[in-house]
Amino acid sequence: MNAMAIHPEIAKVLATLPAPDGSPLDPRAMRAGEAAQVPPLAERLPLYSVDDATAVTSSGEVPVRIYTPMEADSYGLLVYFHGGAFFLGGLDTHDHVARALAKETGHKVISVGYRLAPEAVFPAGLDDCYGVVRWAAGKGGNLKWDGKNLAIAGDSSGGNFVAAVAAIAHDDGFNRITHQVLFYPSLDLDFDVERYPSLRENAEGYGLETAGLKPFNSFYLENGADPADPRVSPIKREDLAGLPAALVITAEHDPLRDEGELYGRRLAEAGVETKVTRYPGANHGFVQHFSWIPELYRAFEETGEFLNARAGQ
């Protein structure tokens, strides 16, 4: 595959970022910084309705935001888990992602405001995500599910939760999940740089840096998440047979690229219908930060095609 330079619009933004100085990460300050960048409501993609709600689940009450793309008698459902290294992100920071997913898939999207590290101990956030999927499939939410597609999707650490939830549901005998969509997923929390060539090839200069993986994920790993546990590093699950059809989207200039692509290959080898698409010129986080670039917005359109090609099969 011929390498493509980083997209010029991404390069412009990367050039403005301060170099990492090795100082400790402050979750509260970083969350405040993210919150300050959320665009006002008037500037967001309009949908038929966007409603905040509470999902009553086996792990407690979980805040969710429900995106309805158009008026209809019934809908396919897509439960969305936002990224943020398990300690950042929320319903607001990824609101634009959920809106685009609703528009391009035609599905009702349920975005999950799961509990974050370091305040929440593993597996609180994962339990919240799985609990909301079970809630969505039940009658509690009055979501007008058509009984066909029940998809799960997530970016980065949210993609980690997608893979983990798919496996947990399978092992539980909960077989309603039809599709899993993983945007540049973080699937192996053992950050040994010898494990994947992309950890070295894309180590520096593309936003997410290989040296930053340990500190960014430390809030999760120091709060009960063991990287040897397949619920934490889903790539360590030995048997991937019987999991839902998968779309794995990776970014060319991402340290995590190769683990996502390996997971896609392993799913396919286990007999799971799988599509892996690498986005050239893209970096980690492009669905959240650079989807205004038309060729990267394509990830949402591709998700819609994937979910609608064989709805409910």
Rank of each mutant, 00 (worst) to 15 (best):
E9K: 11
S59C: 02
G159V: 07
H82T: 04
L199N: 03
Q180D: 04
H170L: 09
E302Y: 04
S156L: 15
L116G: 04
E238M: 14
P294N: 07
W292E: 09
I293D: 08
K214Q: 15
A42C: 04
K148T: 07
A169M: 00
N149I: 09
K139N: 14
Y263R: 02
D95Y: 07
A211H: 10
N142W: 03
G147I: 03
A3E: 12
T57N: 11
V287N: 07
H94F: 13
P185F: 08
A72N: 07
E295Q: 13
E301R: 14
V133Y: 06
V64A: 05
I249D: 04
L45C: 01
D21M: 11
P294V: 00
G158E: 14
L182P: 01
D146Y: 01
D146E: 05
S198K: 01
V97L: 06
F161K: 08
D52F: 06
T178D: 11
G83F: 14
L221R: 08
L77W: 06
R278T: 04
Y48I: 01
G281A: 04
Y114D: 04
A15E: 15
S233T: 00
P63L: 04
G224C: 13
R298N: 15
P185L: 02
R195D: 06
G33E: 10
N149F: 06
F87C: 12
D190A: 13
F174K: 02
N202M: 08
N2D: 15
K108H: 05
E261P: 05
S49Y: 05
Y48P: 00
N223E: 10
P234V: 00
L91F: 12
L91Q: 06
E273N: 10
G90T: 03
E252V: 00
Y206E: 00
R298V: 09
A5H: 10
Q180L: 05
Y297C: 10
F122C: 08
A32H: 15
E259H: 06
A211V: 12
V38M: 10
H107L: 14
L213T: 00
T210A: 07
I249V: 13
V132I: 05
V38K: 09
A19W: 10
G205S: 05
A35D: 15
L88P: 03
N283M: 01
V181W: 12
V79I: 14
T57R: 11
G304E: 11
Q37D: 00
